[in-house]
């Protein structure tokens, strides 16, 4: 196989959903798989932006909690109940999404906004006034 193919295979593996296997915190109260959503993080001077791929999650299914400085996003996926069909082939598997982010104290907690569109969760985390860069004017004595 050429290096190009190897690269592509590697990417394909990366592209697979990462399933939560280690249960470091607590047991889940719902049966079923839980996946880690892929996320992009952007940072500007004013805010942090998290975009997470959570296909199949409705707005009612999103649960965002902020405890101390731990931000947890949870997306509940409804299992499609289709009568009369047999599964022929499965690649992605249906399951919930869960991911934990550690926030610094620089985030303005009250200003956090979350929206979901087409299965992508968009979290806007504004930085607190304290953390914003401040220019100090120098005056001549």
């Amino acid at each position: 196989m050429s290096t190009e193919v190897m690269e592509a295979c590697k990417k394909e593996q990366e592209n697979q959903k990462l399933q939560v296997t280690q249960n470091t915190e607590a047991e889940h109260t719902r049966a079923g798989k839980v996946f880690v959503p892929r996320a992009d993080i952007y940072e500007t001077q004013e805010q942090l932006l998290i975009l997470a791929d959570m296909p199949g999650v409705k707005e009612e299914g999103v649960d965002i909690t902020l405890e101390q400085n731990i931000l947890t996003i949870y997306g509940k996926v409804e299992q499609p109940q289709i009568e009369g069909y047999t599964l022929a082939y499965s690649e992605y598997g249906v399951g919930d999404f869960r991911r934990v982010f550690a926030l610094s104290n620089e985030i303005d907690r009250d200003g956090i906004q979350a929206t979901i569109k087409n299965g992508v969760l968009k979290l806007v985390l504004p930085k607190s006034k304290r953390a914003m860069p401040k220019k100090i004017a120098v005056s001549v004595e």
């Binding site: 047999t86 599964l87 082939y89 598997g93």
Partner: peptide, 8 residues
């Protein structure tokens, strides 16, 4: 990624 299923 895809899932496929089939009915009659």
């Amino acid at each position: 990624r895809i899932d496929t299923s089939e009915s009659a």
